[in-house]
Amino acid sequence: MLVQELLNAVLIGGIYAAIGIGFSLVYGVMNLLNLVHGAIIMLAGYVTYSLFARLGLDPFLSIPVTMGAFFVVGYGLQRFVINRILTASVFMSLILTYGIDLVIVNIVLLVWKTDLLAVTPSYAGASWAIGGLVVSKIRVAIFVVSAALTALMYVFLDGTRTGRAIRAAALDKEAAELVGVDTPGIYAVTYGLSSALAAAAGSMLATIYTLTPTLDGIYLGKAFVVAVLGGLGNITGAAVGGLVLSFAESLGVVVLGPSYQEIIGFGIFLVVLILRPYGLVGRRFYAEI
């Protein structure tokens, strides 16, 4: 029972990490608490549902579709809307992103109504039985894809010209501009990448959790907890944070019962905020990614 739960935790931790990294990246680069993040995950889930129900597209094959589409949406949102208020107060950006979240929720209500929807490919219930453990094939696939995307993101930020520009803009906006980085454009790319990661997560989560129009808040909460556990703005930290959260939730379920799952997550979140506000993985330099 315990081992089974821990196994599930590792598998879910991958996708938590993917969610948290995008959220943390946006905060680290442009100091924006992006309240739209959960709504993007949710909306990508609904899009995946429609692609599956209407066109029979496999949810994993819809990942490139939702990633591409949400990269474009995110890029445009940052370029033409969010960039305009970035220099205003924090409250402005909170109000704006909350507003965008509400718009997305209402789009979902309009298009998909409040029905509970599920993406159920033929292999949805398939599993391997290994030494008494049930290993869900779909969860393994989700873990592998999440880990691959997270690694790709890391390689991109570390080794490409644009990735370096994103890190430079995060570390010192003016210094980045002084060497020629067009920060509004780089912010748009960053938001696009974050949205694309969120979309991939949304497509995959739709195969294990039923879609409801209230998922935006739940997913935003997870992203926020994971990002804070790792240290807001810290990409490596967010990967660790994803695993820590999923382990904590699983242990909570085993020890205290299923109804405690959410409380455990937020409990750890509070403790970390109080004791280690810079996250579990300390960082030497401000805003280091």
């Binding site: 370096r164 520009a165 890190r167 430079a168 570390l171 010192d172 003016e174 210094a175 980045a176 501009e177 002084l178 060497v179 020629g180 980085v181 067009d182 920060t183 960082r283 030497r284 330099f285 401000y286 805003a287 280091e288 990614i289």
Partner: peptide, 30 residues
């Protein structure tokens, strides 16, 4: 500023303003 530098004007700012979390080589490459 991002286009001024492309025209051949560079400012080494007060307080140096290096990208602290990057390596020396990365700073220079930037």
């Amino acid at each position: 500023a991002s286009r001024v530098v492309a025209r051949g004007l560079a400012l080494v700012p007060e307080g140096r303003r290096l990208f602290a979390g990057m390596t020396v080589a990365e700073n220079l490459t930037m």
